[in-house]
Design a protein around this nucleic acid. Structure first.
Lengths: 266, 266
DNA sequence: CGGAATGTTGATCGCGATCAACCGAGGTGG
DNA sequence: CCACCTCGGTTGATCGCGATCAACATTCCG
């Protein structure tokens, strides 16, 4: 497999390994997973709503969005995926997941057969754990998105998104959290933030005038990170970057519960 | 374990078994999982933000909410759990998940140690599959919630929620999808819908005047189900009730992709 | 060079927030 | 038993954020 693909696999492996203790044998299994490399132009469907798939998509380059769609054609992006992310790992256990995927910029992806991923998970329990855990992190991000959409103003949502994307781009080796190139239009951002593209534009203006963020030619530059995370009420914990899931001390809280009006019986 | 607990475990088992092929041995393992029964009053924290837990919560009775919280104290409910749901199954692989859980009505739950669930998953791959799949369904619901919050009007959101809760209550054996008792206040509903309780009230009025739904003393009665799902753009597929995940024909779509501008290479 | 996609700005509108008052049911204590 | 209080629900008046409509600028690309 060519260099860029190896890199994407390595980032994916790093993500898995940062949370789950993997042996060198297990890492080799991931590295030698079979896959078919595919390129697609922007705004091209990768998985259509209702499709049943037999492969998961590892992003090598570009941005992929997970969509929900309304009758009238309006869309809501529910997740962004960049290099090193497995966009629909959950499809391994759920081929008919309603989610649809679309390339938001020209993308390169590797389609990895469920069969191979399942076999890997079956043979190595640590990998099964890692995959499950990866899906759990995805769910955490979705839950945070719900909080943003339900309770935050337009600027706060934007600030939160820019901070999140910064950390993810950095993780993917595509810049730093303070400065990265984002191959998305304002329409795309609006679809993610639940806003119109017009308002996205006005929010950018606000952030620019507050000297928090500057944007030019798709390059996001965050001038005042502290202001950004304050505006967006951003707390990076939910991304679980480098949250180790082994050798954790188990925090028992029975005493607390007992003292807070919860009664127990066997 | 007393009858009500057995019932909840059975509903949980049905949920697992409806999607994953389980042998009788595996079912017995689930049925004999250890657990500590707990009751708690309404508006009582079960898992506080930042807590690290060593058990998952199976709901026996009442309604539990998963929360996100803002600095100023405003909250967003990201998920509802009723009888037969494992509220934080993902905590088995992710003890420090940022999610917090709260009893929204007086509840009874069973706390099942991660240790036992992990052991079951390790010994029976079908159970590992089933657990992972359960989390994937949860994520589907979260994604749908994002679409609702991002793109739908207040009435549409409410209609969608009432339809979803109807199906879930029916699944839990707590009424029918058209008529069920919902132990939530309008404040709770507002926290879930991203609305104020005042507006929740007005939305109920709208739905009542349109002769779609009537509410009295916490009992929801849906007079016109078709109108409800039309208003809410509700499509039950995303709940994956009875979506079998075995013996599925694999739908290959290479031809489609090739004809839609996606190029492949090995 | 010409046309389409994307970004920018202004004017106006409407949904849902906010503030405020009041009602009714339960629960509690005198 | 009733006075009082609290919590949840109901309704009205007003406000403001972000949608919508419209026009134009700019960039990208064939």
């Amino acid at each position: 497999m060519p260099y860029s693909s190896n890199l994407a696999v390595q980032i994916f492996l790093d993500r898995l390994g940062s949370r789950t203790k993997l042996g060198s044998e297990e890492m080799d299994v991931i590295r030698s997973l079979p896959g078919q490399k595919i390129t697609a132009g922007g705004d091209r469907d990768l998985v259509r709503p209702g499709d049943s798939v037999d492969h998961a998509c590892l992003i090598v380059d570009g941005v992929v969005g997970r969509f929900g769609q309304m009758r009238d054609g309006r869309r809501q992006i529910t997740a962004f995926y960049v290099a090193g992310h497995m966009a629909n790992l959950q499809s391994v256990v759920f081929p008919s997941t309603g989610a649809s995927l679309q390339a938001l910029s020209p993308v390169t992806i590797i389609r990895m057969p469920h069969k191979a991923l399942k076999a890997a998970a079956a043979k190595y329990p640590a990998l099964a754990d890692a995959f499950w855990r990866e899906c759990a992190v995805d769910a955490c991000v979705l839950a945070q998105w719900i909080v943003n959409l339900g309770r935050k103003s337009a600027v706060a949502r934007m600030a939160h998104l820019l901070a999140e994307l910064g950390l993810r781009m950095e993780e993917a080796g595509l810049g730093t959290s303070h400065r990265y190139r984002l191959e998305l239009t304002q329409v795309h951002l609006g679809d993610a933030l639940g806003l119109t593209s017009v308002h996205v534009n006005r929010v950018f203006r606000q952030l620019r005038e507050a000297k928090v963020v500057t944007v030019s030619k798709r390059v996001i530059e965050i001038c005042d990170w502290n202001a950004l995370i304050s505006i967006g009420e951003f707390d990076r914990d939910y991304l679980h970057i480098d949250t180790k899931c082994w050798d954790l001390p188990s925090h028992r809280r029975e005493e607390n519960h007992a003292s807070s009006g919860i009664s127990m019986q066997m």
